[in-house]
């Protein structure tokens, strides 16, 4: 739908277009049912970041404080990319496996129920 506007064919400036991020893309990461981290995380990273680096450095740096984090069996993690099941390739870059600007990566860790089983 068009905006009801006083100017005909009104268009707005796209504030978050990828060109504005100095070579980075924004990638969101959420850890399902671990709400001690109140919301998913926003990372800005080059599109040629490998998934391995995202997992080992960025995700680990963000979530290490959680008591479940050290218990994650990474072989068993189920990943979602923008809501669809996703099998990441650790060696490949984000761009090469369809992780584009403002994509959401979710990780599910079955068996880990959060603090006191509360999904926190």
């Amino acid at each position: 739908m068009a905006v009801a506007a006083i100017t005909p064919d009104y268009t707005g400036e796209r504030l978050d277009r990828v060109e504005n991020f100095h070579g980075n893309i924004v990638v969101y990461v959420g850890w399902d049912r671990h709400l001690m981290f109140c919301s998913p995380i926003a990372f800005a990273t080059p599109p040629d970041t490998t998934f391995g680096k995202l997992q080992d450095e960025m995700i680990a740096g963000a979530y290490a404080q959680h008591p479940d984090f050290a218990k994650i069996d990474w072989e068993q993690v189920c990943w979602l990319l923008n809501g669809e099941p996703f099998t990441p390739d650790r060696e490949a870059t984000l761009a090469a496996q369809g992780v584009d600007h403002k994509s959401i990566i979710r990780m599910q860790t079955p068996g880990l129920e959060g603090i006191g089983g509360s999904h926190s």
Partner: peptide, 16 residues
């Protein structure tokens, strides 16, 4: 009204 909200000044994105 997407043309309005493509202009959201999102603080986290602005920092980045």
């Amino acid at each position: 009204e997407p043309e309005k909200y493509v202009q959201s000044w999102l603080p986290v994105h602005q920092i980045y």
